[in-house]
């Protein structure tokens, strides 16, 4: 397989890999590194490529495992690095600032979810995979995926209601 063929196969889902990595690792830089790493691993598997029926699902599983390893090694080092991708909010309209702000809240709430729920909500609500695919990627059964998803959604809604009411009252 040539490089360009590989790129063509990888392009449709490389953003998804990146977003999943970012969901788990939080930092943009680390997520970029993780994505590169995963794609290079895929490239090195080159010859076995045709064996995998669903390369995308396989890549997502690889990403999950890679990020878990990363997180584990970070815990083992007993180092806690807090990432907070600083951004320049340069929006004039008050409304938009408010909106960005509450969107930021959602991000913060999601950061506090357990890893599994993070992944499930990432794969379902953001990437829009169906339950079967998610179950395969995360090596869970479909019911477990639904339960995790439902819990994550409820938690987010509860937290949002809290902050929303806090702002109003």
């Amino acid at each position: 397989m040539t490089q360009s063929e590989f790129i063509n196969i990888v392009t449709p889902f490389k953003d998804k890999v990146f977003r999943l990595a970012k969901r788990l690792l939080v930092s943009t830089e680390e997520a970029e590194d993780a994505t590169q790493e995963v794609l290079i691993k895929l490239w090195n598997k080159n010859n076995d490529f045709k064996k995998y029926r669903n390369i995308e699902a396989f890549a997502m599983t690889m990403t999950k495992n890679f990020c878990f390893d990363k997180l584990k090694s970070k815990q083992a080092q007993n180092l806690k690095i807090v990432h907070s991708n600083y951004q320049d909010h340069n929006v004039a309209l008050q409304k938009q600032v408010e909106l960005n702000d509450s969107i930021g809240w959602v991000g913060k709430i999601m950061e506090q979810l357990p890893e599994q729920q993070k992944m499930v909500i990432q794969l379902r609500d953001i990437e829009q995979y169906d339950f079967k695919e998610i179950a395969k990627m995360l090596d869970m059964n479909e019911t477990a995926v639904r339960v995790a998803l439902s819990r994550a959604r409820k938690t987010i809604r509860e937290q949002l209601t809290k902050t929303h009411n806090y702002g109003v009252k």
Partner: peptide, 26 residues
């Protein structure tokens, strides 16, 4: 109203892209 940021967050996040290139060794 409180659901709004949630769904918008999903939509915004879906647009994030991986911009670095992939260093493939030939």
């Amino acid at each position: 109203e409180m659901y709004k940021p949630m769904f918008q967050y999903f939509l915004v996040n879906h647009q994030e892209q991986f911009t670095k290139d992939i260093p493939l060794n030939t």
